[in-house]
Simulated assay, not measured.
Amino acid sequence: MIVAYGPFLLAALVLNIAPGPDLAFVSAQAAAHGRKIGVMSSLGVCSGAFVHVVFAAIGLSAILMTSALAFAIVKWVGVAYLAWLGFGAIYGTFRKEDGPDRADAGASDVAGDAVAITEFPVGGRARPSAFQAWRRGVLIDVFNPKVALFFMAFLPQFVNPALGHQPLQFLVLGTIVNMIGFVMETAVVLVVAMAAARLRQHVASGFGAGFGKWLQRALGAVFLALGLRLALSERGL
């Protein structure tokens, strides 16, 4: 087992340690909204990645490798979603308060995902729910075709045809990669959330709501940067 799967586990660990868009996303969420939201965002990212594992196992991801149109459609939907989140987060910091019930009313419908992200958890203001954080992570990864291409290129190197049940091997190996990723991202989330909380204690008392607004704008900038990175990506890995 060690000889057969040792290289796979080492490669999966190295790939998950390396900084990337998923790690940037969950770190930004943890810094802006705290530990719980950061962990749920990481769980959402891993859930979205598992969708691509399933697609790779049943052969659907191969379409993204062979069809420029399919790749472009998935990519630009992802870019639009990230841009929507980014501009929503930044725009929300410039709006006047409409009252304490505004966020609760907006978060109950489909637009709640965009509204909630504009709320910073300072001074009693609402923040995204755990479900919204998870959903956001899922959608960001599902609409990133580069994730699908990664699994299509990485997992077949460790699938053993002699064992048979190749789709099942895809699922098992992909699940292991995601589990390692979740553990690594959660560790980062805990560190970032703790550091952000301490920084908030020292800085927010002096700057008040202004600090929360600038941190929220930074979160929006992260979304926009991830969207730009995806927009500039090509079909190759």
Rank of each mutant, 00 (worst) to 15 (best):
I117V: 15
N178P: 04
G236C: 05
G181W: 10
L69A: 14
A218K: 08
M1P: 04
F182S: 03
L163D: 14
A49H: 12
A204Y: 05
G220D: 11
I140R: 00
F211Q: 01
T186I: 12
S42T: 14
A153S: 15
G236I: 07
G124H: 10
N16D: 07
R229Y: 04
S27W: 05
P21W: 03
V172C: 02
S42F: 07
D22P: 02
I73M: 06
S129R: 14
A126G: 07
H165I: 11
V138E: 02
V138N: 01
D104C: 08
S47K: 06
F143H: 01
G106R: 15
K75G: 11
A83F: 15
V39W: 12
L23W: 10
V142M: 05
G227Y: 14
T118P: 02
A153K: 14
A162N: 12
A11H: 08
R35H: 13
F211L: 01
G181K: 09
Q132L: 08
R217T: 05
W84D: 00
A197F: 01
K146V: 01
G20M: 06
L226E: 03
A209W: 04
K36Y: 04
L60S: 05
E234C: 05
A196M: 05
G227C: 13
A218G: 14
L224F: 15
R229D: 08
A24S: 11
W214D: 01
G123C: 13
A130M: 06
M40T: 14
L10R: 08
I140Y: 01
F158W: 10
S42I: 10
G78F: 13
L171D: 01
V138P: 07
G137Q: 02
A68H: 08
P156N: 09
K213A: 10
G220I: 15
A126K: 14
V159W: 10
N178L: 06
W214V: 07
V191N: 04
M152Y: 13
A28H: 12
T66D: 09
Q166T: 15
A153I: 13
G38A: 10
S233T: 11
D98N: 14
L173H: 09
A225V: 15
A107I: 13
A148S: 12
L168V: 14
L199E: 00
A24R: 08
G20K: 11
A72V: 01
V191G: 12
H202F: 12
G20T: 02
L215N: 05
P167D: 09
E119P: 00
G20D: 00
G34Q: 03
L171F: 12
A187V: 13
Q157C: 06
G6L: 01
F182M: 11
A221C: 15
F25V: 03
A103Q: 07
F158I: 07
W214L: 06
L215Q: 12
G236K: 00
E97W: 12
R200P: 05
H33I: 01
G34L: 06
V142R: 00
F94L: 07
G44I: 06
I140W: 00
A126M: 13
R95D: 09
S27R: 02
L82S: 02
V122S: 09
I2F: 13
F50D: 02
Q169R: 10
L139F: 15
L60G: 02
F8S: 09
A193L: 09
Q132K: 09
F143C: 03
